[in-house]
Amino acid sequence: MATFKDFRNNIKPNWCPGCGDFSVQAAIQRASANVGLEPENLAVVSGIGCSGRISGYINSYGFHSIHGRSLPIAQGVKMANRDLTVIASGGDGDGFAIGMAHTVHAIRRNIDVTYIVMDNHIYGLTKGQTSPRSAEGFKTKSTPTGSIESQISIMELAISSGAGFVAQSFSSDLKELTSIIEQGINHKGFSLINVFSPCVTFNKVNTYEWFKENITKLDAIEGYDPANRTQAVNTLMDHNGLVTGLIYQNKERPSYEQLVNGFSETGLVKQNISLEKDTFDGLLTEFM
C-alpha cells in the first residue's frame, strides 16, 4: 500500500518560503495515503495562479490547466473514469472570480470531485491585486484606496447552492486539514474545501497571526452538528465565515454519477467502443 512518501515527487515548488500552499500539498499527500489510494488512481487538476502549480508537486496524474477551468476538466475526468479519485484545486481568484460559474454549477451537479481552494484573499502570481475574497477596504495595487466591492461569503453561497460537503481549514493546522481532505475524498459527491492559505509576500493583513486570532474551530462549539444546514449558515454568519472544520455535510444526496440514467458502473474508459452491426442497423432504422 502506498504511503504519503509515494505521493511526493522530486520537483521543488516555486512557492515563496512560508507559503501556506506547502501545507496543502502535504495534506493532500497524507490524506491520499490515509484513504488507501495508489498514485496512478489519483488525478489532480488545477487552475492558474501560485496554487495552480500544486498538480505538478504531487506524484499522481496531474493536469495544470487554464485559469478558472479546473472544475469542468476535473468533472470530465471523473465522468470518463469514475474509478479514479479526482481532486480539483486552485486559488480564490481561480475558483471564485473567473471560475465562479463553474464552482456553483459543480456544486449543483454533484459529480464526485473534491475541490480544494487555497484562499489567500489576494492575487499573488500577478503580484498583488484584489480578489473576491478580499475584505472591503483592502488596499492592493488594483484597489489603492481600498476595495469597494463586497467579500464573497463562499461557504454560505455553497450551502445555499445545494452543496453536500462544505468544509474549511487553515494551513497552520495540518492535522485538521488532512482529516478534512480525507473526509472530502470519502464523501460521495462534490466536496468544497476552502483553506485559509496565507500569502506571505503580498498580503500583509490576512497573515498567519491574523487568521490564528480570528478563526473559531467548530470542534470547540458545543453541540455543533454538521448535518444541520440552518445551524451551519447561522454559525458562518455569526463568525464572519472565519470557522474551520466540517461545516456541513449531507450524506443522503446521491452523486451525479449515481443518478445519471444508464451510466456505466465502472470507468467509461474501460468500455469497448465499437458498435455491433446489428446495433448500428437498429439506429439507422429509426430514421427510415
Binding site: 493536469f63 476538466i73 471523473k78 465522468m79 479514479l84
Partner: peptide, 27 residues
C-alpha cells in the same frame, strides 16, 4: 444505452474544458 452520458453545462467554456477532461482520461 451505451453507458455514456451528455451533460448540459453552464456555458461553452465548461463544455469544451469538460470535453478536454474526458479525452484526457481516455474517453
Amino acid at each position: 444505452e451505451f453507458g455514456g452520458a451528455v451533460i448540459q453545462t453552464e456555458d461553452e467554456i465548461s463544455a469544451c474544458t469538460m470535453a478536454i477532461g474526458g479525452n484526457y482520461a481516455g474517453v
